[in-house]
Nucleic acid binder design. Structure first.
Length: 785
DNA sequence: ATTGGGACGTTTTTT
DNA sequence: ACGTCCCAAT
């Protein structure tokens, strides 16, 4: 008991000792929230609450693990349910699958699976996709599910054209999922929410089964999650939620800030506890965070404070480009490790997009700095792994059509696209899984006898494999690899590309299976393994114990802390991201994202900006983020590049005319990173792409250039092309055989030209090899046409 | 049926 | 720059 309450502040104690009734814990960053939550659970148990009546729901497995570990120290061996929302729902759905029209061995489609399924549904729904992409449809349907909109509801209430198309696809997609005995990520929440709504008795049962519910990161819940939580705390309103509206960064996934802002209205009997003292960061860092977040309009005012000693000033650094940024940071880190006794694990580098980790990765590697990338290329997304996984999925759930289509001809066994197409058609018409259709292959019109034989052979292979379904995973996998001659297939297909890693990956996958067998001697079913794989993200792969520098996105950093944080690319169009900054809500969410990043830092923090940024192949002048203007600038240490020279107050001309204040660019000024097809495509709505495509190339080039000049003026920078030749070379000046000069590569010859308009691209051969250039932006000079 | 080359679109963030 | 999709050649 003493161990539970000792060392807590008054407000922490208040939260910890609250047992019955709704509780809202508003916890600022670094305020010891996890500590409070775990201590509270321990306290509840010590007061006689049965652990089996408690469920703690988090957003990441990482958070759940952390909680479990900490509780284990306070109250060992207590079976409190802890896990993510999705896992919670997956388990309920296992149990009550039939209520959602599923069988208990249902599969969980990952994003790629859903994408495949969606394409099939779009084709089957017979809609015109000329004005809506599959991605758009997917996202509309996803957000419908997050808002608990059923296919029927959507059909009756679709006004906009994009919605109308999606509304037609939605029921088909759901029907096909049902036939495949599968759900997507959104369905996990959706089905459970609907199930609770439609089955009052079940709802009541579960309400009392989970008498005490805790929800972490409540600010990130969407309507489906809200409904689930609500449904489980009506009779027993012992719902405790923790969260921080300032750290809500999942609006794009349907998170509704109102869930936490209105909590006090939903549960009038609520006790609210505010945890505002920060134990993590220096006052310097906290002031920067606070100044920034004050600029959000939609927000509950909150005072952050700390008793920590004043530390180093926050650094605002400017680099020439992304490569120097990466090198500079890598150098700084290895210096700190060499001279200050810091460890690699003390550092994290945060960025807005995964793509930005590339150059960072390169710099780390070249300096021999150990690093880990969270959410880079995922292990489970590699081809070999997906293939084997698909076999496992199909063994577990014979209706898994996405898996069927993936493996039916892998390794190649004479079943071509046409045959698969006919199987699919037959399956659609009869509303049966494709494997079932394959069993009826002789009944299907149009499939040649020869092909049918191959199909039957596949079915026989499948039946052999499924006999092993209940063996250990290791045995099953080894048998699978053996029977399918999978490794021989890999070897054969990777002759020319010296891609020997594929077979290594297979071995690694088998090791993972061995490990799973070892950890689950009792419940190590195939189903459990597949569920784990589906619901474990790479964010969870973060290993604190590893002594490595961590590279990740700002989103992935939530909930973590590091002594030293570098936030890269604090630039207009990147942070705030160009796709989010058009709406106030989006813009404020971007601001919160930066807030989250800043507050990860314990002792040191550097924000950085580049003069130029290379995205998707081409380099553009970059404009500092408007958020920087909102920071207490006089407190920051502003440094240009690696020279310890204060650039901020200097004569702007001294460094290429960079703006001498952090004034915002003009309205239409700047988003040099918006799109690689150039500003032309994104011109004000009406003069859209079609029109541009009809213009003669020279005129397009001129438009591109004029727009580019304009945005460059705003940034106060000349574009590279302008600096080079003071003028514009029309894209039509290039033909095959044209002699050109490039600043880096030297002289070369145009080998070929493809594309048109802003995308017109030339392949140029130089002495040291060939390079491709977007002509409208290339740093090329014509020597001789 | 399979393979490989080329055009084309695409990525913001994640369970 | 990268992955995916389509088509032509084998």
């Amino acid at each position: 008991m003493d161990a539970i309450l000792n060392g807590l502040t008054e407000s922490q104690k208040q939260a910890v000792t609250h047992i019955d009734g709704p509780l809202l814990i508003l916890a600022g960053p670094g305020s010891g929230k996890t500590r409070v939550v775990t201590h509270r659970i321990a306290y509840m148990i010590s007061q006689g609450v049965s652990p089996s009546q408690i469920a703690a729901v988090t957003f990441t497995n990482k958070a759940a693990d952390e909680m479990r570990t900490r509780l284990g120290q306070l109250a060992p061996g207590q079976p409190v349910w802890m896990g993510t929302f999705h896992r919670f729902c997956a388990q309920l759905l296992r149990r009550y699958a039939s209520l959602a029209g599923l069988s208990e061995n249902y599969s969980i489609y990952d994003t790629a699976d859903s994408k495949q399924a969606m394409k099939r549904a779009i084709a089957a729904a017979n809609v015109s996709t000329s004005h809506t992409s599959p991605e758009q449809i997917t996202s509309i349907i996803s957000s419908a599910k997050n808002r608990l909109v059923t296919p029927e509801m959507m059909l009756s209430a679709s006004s906009r054209t994009g919605d109308a198309v999606a509304a037609k696809v939605y029921p088909v997609y759901q029907q096909q999922l049902l036939t495949a005995n599968a759900v997507d990520f959104d369905d996990l929440l959706f089905h459970v929410a609907i199930m609770l709504r439609n089955n009052p008795e079940l709802r009541e049962d579960l309400d009392s089964r989970f008498r005490y519910i805790l929800v972490d990161e409540y600010q990130d819940t969407n309507l489906a999650q809200y409904a689930i939580v609500r449904g489980l705390s009506i009779n027993n309103a012992n719902l405790a939620v923790t969260g921080d509206p300032d750290q809500s960064i999942y609006g794009w996934r349907g998170a509704d800030l109102n869930n936490i802002l209105d909590f006090e209205k939903d549960y009038p009997a609520v006790t609210t506890v505010r945890l505002e003292q920060n134990y993590r960061s220096t006052p310097n860092i906290l002031r920067v965070a606070d100044q920034l977040i004050r600029h959000n309009q939609k927000r509950k005012k909150k005072d952050l404070y700390t008793h920590n000693p004043e530390g180093d000033p926050v650094v605002l650094r400017m680099y020439e480009d992304g490569y120097q940024e990466a090198d500079g940071i890598a150098d700084a880190i290895s210096n700190a490790i060499r001279t200050e006794g810091m460890r690699p694990r003390d550092f994290a580098i945060l960025c807005r997009m995964n793509a930005l980790t590339r150059s960072l990765e390169h710099s780390m590697r070249s300096r021999g700095l150990p690093y880990q990338i969270i959410n880079g290329v995922e292990f489970y997304q590699r081809k070999e792994i997906k293939d084997l996984l698909a076999y496992l999925h199909l063994i577990n759930n014979p209706s898994h059509d996405v898996a069927f289509q993936r493996v039916v001809n892998v390794p190649t066994r004479g079943i071509g696209a046409k045959t698969v197409e006919r199987l699919r058609r037959y399956a659609d018409v009869n509303r049966i899984p494709m494997l079932q259709a394959a069993r009826d292959v002789y009944k299907i019109e149009g499939i040649a006898k020869r092909s049918a034989t191959f199909v039957t052979r596949f079915v026989e292979l499948y039946d052999r494999l499924s006999k092993k379904a209940s063996a250990t995973l290791e045995d099953l996998l080894r048998y699978l690899v053996e029977e399918t001659k999978y490794e021989a297939f890999l070897e054969k297909s990777s002759v020319d590309q010296q891609d020997s890693s594929a077979i290594g990956n297979v071995d690694e996958f088998i090791s993972a299976a061995v490990e799973f067998d070892r950890q689950h001697p009792e419940d190590g079913t195939l189903e459990a393994f597949l569920e784990q794989v589906a619901l474990v993200s790479d964010t969870d792969a973060f290993e604190e114990s590893d002594d490595r520098v961590t590279l990740m996105t700002l989103h992935a950093a939530k909930g973590l802390e590091f002594p030293c944080i570098y936030i890269v690319g604090v630039e207009q169009g990147l942070l705030p991201h160009s796709r989010s900054m058009d709406t106030d809500a989006g813009f404020e969410e971007e601001r919160r994202l930066l807030f989250v990043g800043i507050t990860r830092a314990m002792q040191r923090l550097q924000l950085s900006v580049c003069k130029r940024r290379t995205v998707r192949g081409d380099t553009r002048p970059a404009v500092p983020s408007p958020f920087l203007n909102e920071l207490p600038l006089d407190e920051l240490k502003k440094v240009e590049s690696n020279v310890d020279r204060d650039w901020f107050d200097e004569d702007p001309d001294a460094h290429g005319g960079y703006p001498d204040s952090w004034d915002l660019p003009d309205e239409d000024g700047g988003d040099p990173l918006a799109d690689d097809s150039g500003p032309t495509v994104h011109e004000s709505a009406a003069t859209a792409y079609d029109e541009v495509c009809q213009l003669p190339e020279a005129e397009i080039a001129e438009r591109v250039e004029s727009k580019k000049r304009k945005s460059a003026q705003v940034a106060g920078l000349k574009t590279a092309a302008d600096m080079l030749n003071g003028g514009v070379t029309p894209v039509t000046a290039y033909r095959e055989g044209t002699q050109v000069r490039h600043t880096e590569y030297g002289d070369g010859t145009v080998v070929s030209i493809t594309g048109r308009g802003p995308k017109r691209t030339a392949t140029v051969r130089f002495d040291d090899g060939e390079h491709n250039f977007r002509l409208a932006f290339a740093k090329l000079e014509v020597i001789d046409g």
